[in-house]
């Protein structure tokens, strides 16, 4: 039991260390999110717009400037979460395979990645919600935070899967940037006023975007709407677990020593059945 705990905590500690040493992600978090929100606040048109949230069935009237701030915050946190998870997974995947073959329990390595994502989600959510609160008192800050968290989890999960599947860093960055760009653009009432296209509700940000917009300006309950993105998080985590399992499986276990012309000792045979490879 102690070994399991040690394996998990060591993996979690070094996974978080890897995230903290991702200078680009840390710089983006420190400067990109506040700058983006500030620039929108300072420059976007401040007229009133009315839009319909199809997921919640309510009409919302709000400042266009603040609406864009919400969309920008969603875009910023999803890009950063997707990028962080992609880079951490991509840069460690060969090493993870080596560790598993050396005997590291793979469930603990994967659990460490997902728990690290939960911690990143908590930190990014608090930070971005705090920045929005500096702009105006949100109608329901906790519900906006929940929507941001759900969006981060969905794109963090996508980054995790991309880190296992894609072949290059540039590919991963491009996929994360383009996916969030399209998703945020389609969910924004400013860039897509109709917001009722077929298939729109299947995108990861459909629930969180509408929940964040409604919660920022109205008292409408939106937690279940945010939770729609958790299906994406669950699906991407399950896919990541499957890909991780396939990548780290041992193709050929040592055969039993029985049958060797000169068989090693029983002890050696037992060792062979659980041989560690580095």
């Amino acid at each position: 039991m102690k070994h399991h705990w040690t394996a998990f905590t060591v993996a979690l500690g070094f996974t978080l260390t890897g995230h903290l040493r991702n200078r680009l992600a840390m710089s983006m978090t420190a400067f990109f999110i506040p700058t983006w929100i500030y620039v929108v606040r300072a420059t976007a048109l401040d007229k009133s717009i009315t839009f319909h949230t199809s997921a919640l069935g309510t009409e919302v009237t709000a400042s266009m400037n603040r609406t864009i701030q919400i969309s920008s915050a969603l875009h910023a946190v999803t890009v950063i979460a997707g990028f962080m998870m992609f880079m951490a997974t991509f840069s460690a995947r060969d090493m993870d395979q080596r560790l598993v073959l050396a005997g590291y329990p793979r469930a603990h390595l994967l659990a460490a990645k997902i728990v690290a994502l939960l911690l990143i989600t908590a930190a990014l959510t608090c930070y971005s919600t705090g920045l929005l609160l500096l702009s105006w008192p949100l109608a329901q800050p906790w519900a906006v935070a929940a929507a941001l968290a759900a969006a981060i989890l969905a794109y963090g999960g996508l980054g995790l899967v991309a880190g296992f599947l894609l072949r290059g860093e540039l590919e991963g960055f491009f996929v994360v940037v383009m996916a969030t760009l399209i998703d945020v653009g389609m969910q924004s009432p400013v860039s897509n006023p109709a917001g009722d296209q077929t298939g729109l509700n299947a995108l990861p940000l459909y629930g969180p975007a509408q929940a964040a917009l409604a919660s920022a300006f109205t008292p409408t309950h939106s937690l279940t709407c945010s939770a729609r993105a958790l299906a994406w998080f669950a699906a991407t985590s399950a896919l990541a677990a499957l890909v991780f399992h396939l990548r780290t499986r041992r193709h050929q276990r040592p055969m039993p020593c029985v049958g060797l012309a000169s068989a090693p000792t029983q002890n050696e045979c037992r060792e062979g059945d659980r041989s560690a490879v580095s």
Binding site: H251, Q252, P254, C257, E268, E271, S275, V277
Partner: peptide
């Protein structure tokens, strides 16, 4: 054991590096 052969057998005894 990192790669699977199409045919043939591999036998090892003891841990390996």
């Amino acid at each position: 054991g990192m790669l699977s052969p199409d045919r043939g057998t591999v036998r090892r005894s003891g841990t390996l590096g």
